[in-house]
Design a protein around this nucleic acid. Structure first.
Lengths: 152, 152
DNA sequence: TTCTGATAGCGGCATATGCCACTAAATTCA
DNA sequence: TGAATTTAGTGGCATATGCCGCTATCAGAA
């Protein structure tokens, strides 16, 4: 087995990112569990909250998320009455999103738990280190990784 | 709208991690597309390859992934004939995994593309910076984030 | 004004991931 | 040895995410 000399997947930026995301996601999810929300849902509610009745496209862009994926993710939140949508009167293609009163209450509840998770995590890795990490991740999300289509 | 003063979700370590993962995942997926594999699948095939017919539990542990999630993710790869499983003769609870010959060929093909993606990414953020990032992500994956059950 | 192209979302399909309940197999203990 | 416990996976259910093709709208050109 020559495999013994092959480098681990520790070298793959993408694999490491996914792995860390699984780990941290489980942690935040655990802490948020009492609220009944997943960390992704809490984050989405928050993103909607800090926006001014944002359009779906705007939310998707902010989260670097596929528009249809956002639509799917929104469904359980709409079903559970935390979020509602309405067509923009000036452009009926645009669907805007806002929290319902219950959604706002639920978000407050979840934010309390989020602070706990956030704090506990930063106690482990250090506030500075966490900030550096977030900055690096922000840079990645902002990268222009257009596929050079091997053209010309 | 007092929201204007609220901090963006840029402060959430978990949200930033997920966002960067979506971004990078799309990029690696795009580059890997000609192979027909997603980046997650390529990573999984590689992990299996570098192991010595690893048990599912061992793979899941290495990837910090839920065991049943691994089982689900493995299904398309088995269906497509890239991977096969077999019971460990010494402990029939354990199911070991290995690549099929076609799986090995497909992995080789995907690895070529992976190198392209990896290279292009590191050209953008810098080799050093990428290495630092991976190290930070590795630390996170290794964290002991057990929920203190608020117990005695 | 009508035809054409660009935008914003939706719905279907597929993979990624997790949790929970359940089964099978091995281990421990009385 | 036989019951209780632990370990390894499975299957079902639910969310997370993406891609593709389709529809409704809007904007700009003829």
């Amino acid at each position: 087995m020559t495999q013994a000399t092959l480098p681990g997947l520790t070298l793959c930026n993408n694999a490491m990112l996914r792995r860390a995301t699984r780990k941290l996601g489980q942690f935040y999810d655990d802490v948020l569990a009492p609220s009944g929300l997943k960390a992704t849902q809490q984050g989405l509610l928050y993103q909607i909250h800090i926006g001014d009745e944002p359009a779906m496209g705007a939310i998707a862009a902010a989260l670097v998320m596929d528009l249809s994926a956002l639509g799917h993710t929104l469904k359980p939140l709409i079903r559970d009455g935390y979020v509602e949508t309405f067509a923009d009167p000036d452009d009926r293609r645009i669907k805007r999103v806002r929290l319902t009163p219950q959604g706002l209450i639920k978000l407050d509840e979840a934010m309390k738990l989020w602070r706990v998770a956030q704090q506990r995590f930063e106690d482990m890795v250090g506030r500075e280190q966490a900030a550096r990490l977030r900055a690096a991740l922000d840079d990645i999300a902002a990268l222009d990784l257009d596929m050079p289509p091997a053209a010309t």
